[in-house]
Amino acid sequence: MKTQEELTEIVRDHFSDMGEIATLYVQVYESSLESLVGGVIFEDGRHYTFVYENEDLVYE
């Protein structure tokens, strides 16, 4: 089982391919040991929310 830090790094690596990240945040109250819920804001102003669970990243 991966730690929350490892899950965060996986998500950061994925989004870094889309541009320069200004902020990546995790909603700790919605996340667990198996899933990571949060959002990412890019330097150009784009903002996505995401759920990473079971090695699957869903964002909008």
Rank of each mutant, 00 (worst) to 15 (best):
residue 27 Q to Y: 13
residue 42 F to I: 02
residue 51 V to C: 10
residue 6 E to S: 06
residue 32 S to R: 06
residue 14 H to F: 15
residue 56 D to E: 13
residue 38 G to K: 00
residue 35 S to V: 13
residue 4 Q to L: 13
residue 46 R to A: 06
residue 37 V to C: 11
residue 43 E to F: 13
residue 6 E to D: 09
residue 32 S to V: 10
residue 39 G to T: 10
residue 6 E to C: 07
residue 45 G to F: 04
residue 26 V to I: 14
residue 7 L to N: 03
residue 55 E to M: 12
residue 30 E to Q: 10
residue 24 L to D: 00
residue 1 M to W: 12
residue 53 E to S: 15
residue 16 S to I: 10
residue 4 Q to M: 14
residue 2 K to M: 09
residue 48 Y to F: 11
residue 18 M to S: 04
residue 29 Y to Q: 06
residue 9 E to G: 10
residue 37 V to K: 15
residue 48 Y to E: 00
residue 45 G to T: 04
residue 58 V to C: 11
residue 40 V to N: 00
residue 55 E to F: 11
residue 57 L to N: 02
residue 60 E to H: 14
residue 50 F to A: 00
residue 32 S to E: 11
residue 16 S to K: 14
residue 51 V to T: 12
residue 10 I to D: 05
residue 13 D to R: 14
residue 57 L to V: 07
residue 3 T to K: 06
residue 23 T to F: 11
residue 47 H to A: 07
residue 39 G to Q: 08
residue 3 T to R: 07
residue 14 H to Q: 09
residue 15 F to H: 00
residue 10 I to V: 08
residue 24 L to G: 00
residue 22 A to E: 07
residue 30 E to F: 06
residue 44 D to I: 02
residue 56 D to K: 15
residue 33 L to S: 12
residue 15 F to E: 01
residue 57 L to G: 02
residue 15 F to D: 01
residue 48 Y to R: 00
residue 55 E to N: 14
residue 31 S to T: 08
residue 10 I to R: 10
residue 59 Y to A: 05
residue 25 Y to V: 04
residue 45 G to H: 04
residue 40 V to Q: 00
residue 44 D to Y: 02
residue 37 V to Q: 10
residue 21 I to E: 01
residue 37 V to S: 09
residue 45 G to A: 04
residue 30 E to T: 14
residue 54 N to G: 10
residue 35 S to H: 12
residue 49 T to C: 07
residue 12 R to H: 06
residue 31 S to D: 08
residue 59 Y to T: 05
residue 57 L to Y: 04
residue 51 V to E: 04
residue 22 A to K: 14
residue 12 R to T: 06
residue 56 D to F: 15
residue 5 E to H: 11
residue 38 G to S: 00
residue 14 H to E: 05
residue 35 S to A: 07
residue 58 V to R: 14
residue 13 D to V: 15
residue 3 T to N: 08
residue 55 E to D: 13
residue 24 L to S: 01
residue 40 V to P: 00
residue 47 H to I: 07
residue 51 V to M: 10
residue 18 M to D: 03
residue 16 S to A: 12
residue 16 S to Q: 10
residue 22 A to V: 13
residue 28 V to R: 14
residue 47 H to D: 02
residue 21 I to N: 02
residue 26 V to P: 01
residue 10 I to C: 06
residue 17 D to I: 15
residue 58 V to T: 12
residue 11 V to K: 01
residue 3 T to G: 07
residue 39 G to A: 08
residue 17 D to W: 14
residue 27 Q to E: 07
residue 3 T to V: 05
residue 44 D to K: 01
residue 51 V to I: 13
residue 12 R to K: 10
residue 58 V to M: 10
residue 13 D to I: 14
residue 57 L to W: 05
residue 23 T to P: 01
residue 31 S to Q: 11
residue 8 T to Q: 08
